[in-house]
Simulated scan of single mutants.
Amino acid sequence: MPVNAALRDYLKTRRSVGIAFLREPGPNAQELNEILTIGTRVPDHGKLTPWRLILIEGDDRIKVGEKLAEIARRNNPALDEPGLEMERRQFLPAPLTIGVIFSPRQSTKAPEFEQLLSAGNVCFNLVNAAFAFGYAATWVTRWFGFDTAAQQMLGARGGERFVGFVHIGTPAITPDDRERPTLEQVVSRWRS
């Protein structure tokens, strides 16, 4: 295959943009369809498709926030109004959030851990796809990805769980790069 310099350079400089810095507009319907197509083109040993996607956009972002605030209040009755407001804004200001649900399948070919990795790859592919269309994204997990009531409210079914939420929008900033580990810190050669 020929060298793809643009892709190489992108991968060397890719940097997530936090949800607080994602603005309108988000992807249009055609762009979103392509982002989802790219996002789901991941390693999937056994062709099990052990993941599903939930789209949260438009006014549903506000409705989800209200429901999250209700769950947070039930979990913590002492939560004050600023804390509740923070929960209401979990899916704002980003115009689009894609929840990636791990939905494991019975398989003798692909262990559950491998299926989980496939779901994680969907998250990262969605981030890269968003950037390919000129948007920015961030992949996060939050308490509601681990809370049973919140997971169910967001669309997870029995035996499923969220592996992440990919927030997508137009970047309001260009983030500075952060310090990365040196290869000497993380790479070693196997020796017999």
Rank of each mutant, 00 (worst) to 15 (best):
M1K: 14
M1H: 11
M1R: 13
V3K: 12
N4C: 12
R8L: 14
D9P: 06
Y10M: 11
Y10F: 15
T13F: 10
R14E: 00
S16W: 07
V17E: 07
V17P: 08
V17H: 02
I19E: 08
F21H: 15
R23E: 15
P25A: 11
P25T: 05
G26C: 04
N28Q: 12
A29N: 11
E31Y: 13
L32Y: 02
N33W: 15
E34P: 00
I35P: 00
G39E: 09
G39N: 01
T40A: 07
D44R: 00
D44T: 06
D44V: 03
D44E: 10
K47Q: 15
L48T: 11
P50G: 02
W51G: 04
R52M: 11
R52N: 06
R52L: 09
L53K: 09
L55I: 01
L55S: 01
I56K: 06
G58I: 04
D60W: 10
D60Y: 14
R61D: 02
K63L: 15
V64I: 06
G65F: 07
E66D: 15
K67S: 13
K67V: 13
L68M: 00
A69E: 05
A69G: 10
A69S: 11
E70R: 07
R74W: 07
N75G: 11
N75D: 15
N76R: 12
E81L: 08
E81W: 09
E81D: 11
G83F: 02
G83V: 05
E85C: 06
R88F: 01
Q90V: 14
F91K: 02
L92P: 02
A94W: 02
T97H: 05
G99A: 10
V100D: 05
V100L: 08
S107I: 05
K109I: 15
A110R: 07
P111W: 09
P111Q: 10
P111I: 07
E112A: 10
L116T: 04
L117C: 13
G120L: 00
N121D: 05
N121K: 02
C123R: 05
F124E: 01
F124G: 04
F124M: 11
V127E: 00
V127H: 03
A129Y: 07
A130H: 03
A132G: 14
G134N: 10
T138N: 11
V140S: 09
V140Q: 08
T141P: 08
T141F: 04
W143C: 04
F144W: 12
F144D: 04
F144C: 08
F146G: 11
D147E: 15
T148M: 12
T148Y: 09
A149W: 02
A150I: 01
A150T: 09
Q151L: 03
Q151G: 02
Q152M: 10
L154A: 03
L154E: 00
A156D: 04
G159K: 03
G159L: 03
G159W: 14
R161M: 09
F162S: 03
F162G: 05
F165H: 07
I168A: 04
I168L: 09
G169M: 06
P171Q: 12
A172V: 11
I173D: 01
T174V: 13
R178A: 08
R178I: 11
E179H: 10
R180M: 08
P181R: 12
V186M: 12
V187F: 04
S188Q: 09
W190V: 15
R191C: 12
R191N: 15
